[in-house]
């Protein structure tokens, strides 16, 4: 039986992208359900942010078993965990070095989340605030667990039309 490697890879790649799309759609479907259930007058933004916060909390749970404080490049290793998470979701993300080993920049060259937000009519401000909150929540738990003063801030954002998202991750001394 012949084996067409290109065809097999193309099929797998298409499935992978479909799963990534489905993941984001599910998030926004559940967001819509929660908003509708909350009824008129509910704070849609607050509901959406709560969902992002829960997502951040759960991401932290998956990071904690992987934290190795006895290994060098602690900050870079945390950044790489974010990179892997977002790559799995379809983003193009890299880590760039900062001033020293206690600072790195996580750069999202491409991210599919704002596009999905648009498809479901969610404002860009919510997408940015939600993503920021998820990251802040994850970092807060990682910082608490590791007993290190780890911080993250957004310096550029695709939802603001700045072409890419850049987050500074650093250890405050």
């Amino acid at each position: 039986m012949s084996f067409d490697a290109e065809k097999e890879i193309a099929k797998l790649w298409a499935k992978c992208q479909a799963v990534q799309d489905e993941n984001r759609r599910t998030f926004y479907q559940c967001r819509e359900a929660a908003i509708q259930m909350a009824g008129d007058g509910a704070d849609e933004n607050a509901i959406a942010l709560k969902a992002w916060e829960i997502k951040g909390k759960d991401v932290a749970k998956s990071y904690l078993p992987r934290i190795r404080m006895d290994k060098p490049k602690f900050v870079e290793n945390i950044a790489k965990l974010f990179v892997n998470s977002w790559r799995n979701q379809g983003a193009v993300v890299t880590v760039e070095p900062g001033a020293d080993e206690n600072e790195v920049f996580i750069v999202w060259e491409r991210c599919p989340w704002p596009t999905t937000a648009k498809q479901y009519g969610a404002p860009m401000a919510e997408d940015l605030a939600g993503c920021d909150l998820a990251l802040q929540t994850t970092i807060a738990d990682v910082a608490l667990f590791s007993n290190r003063n780890l911080k993250i801030e957004t310096t550029k954002a695709i939802p603001r039309g700045e072409g890419k998202c850049v987050r500074r991750l650093w250890l405050e001394q």
Partner: peptide
């Protein structure tokens, strides 16, 4: 102290 669990 409050500390997140490492094991789910």
């Amino acid at each position: 102290s409050f500390l997140p669990q490492r094991l789910r």
